[in-house]
């Protein structure tokens, strides 16, 4: 199982930072995701891009978790040497996260 089976996501940039909004597909999944998809787990997943820190905000009204990845864009839209200087592909990448059965994801 991968995260896209459980959630939607969208990412974008603010200067040199990026955010990824993750939206659970049901309230049961949201309750489970709050425990599973911690800021630390997301920071570890993206460690090769060297974010300085990751902060998580909750939006229970839309079953949403918003992750802010600081300093993750290697300079941001104008200055970065990377193709995806605006972090547009980050959401897509996060949705590919493998969910281990041992984490007991909701069906």
């Amino acid at each position: 199982m991968r995260l896209y089976n459980l959630a939607l996501a969208r990412s974008g940039d603010k200067g040199n930072h990026a955010n990824i909004g993750v939206l659970a597909r049901s309230p049961e999944i949201y309750a489970w995701l709050k425990d599973f998809l911690t800021a630390a787990r997301v920071e570890d997943y993206f460690r090769s891009l060297r974010p300085s820190r990751v902060e998580r905000y909750e939006a229970p009204n839309i079953w949403g978790l918003n992750f802010v990845l600081y300093d993750v864009l290697a300079g941001g839209a104008a200055r970065s040497l990377r193709l995806d200087s605006q972090g547009k592909s980050l959401a897509c990448a996060l949705l590919e996260m493998e969910i281990p059965q041992s984490a007991k994801p909701p069906h």
Binding site: L8, K14, N19, G21, L23, Y57, I62, N66
Partner: peptide, 16 residues
């Protein structure tokens, strides 16, 4: 609801 939820968090820091 889903297209609106996705856009609500687009390029947002603290949603509150």
């Amino acid at each position: 609801i889903n297209t609106v939820r996705e856009q609500l968090l687009y390029e947002v820091g603290d949603p509150s």
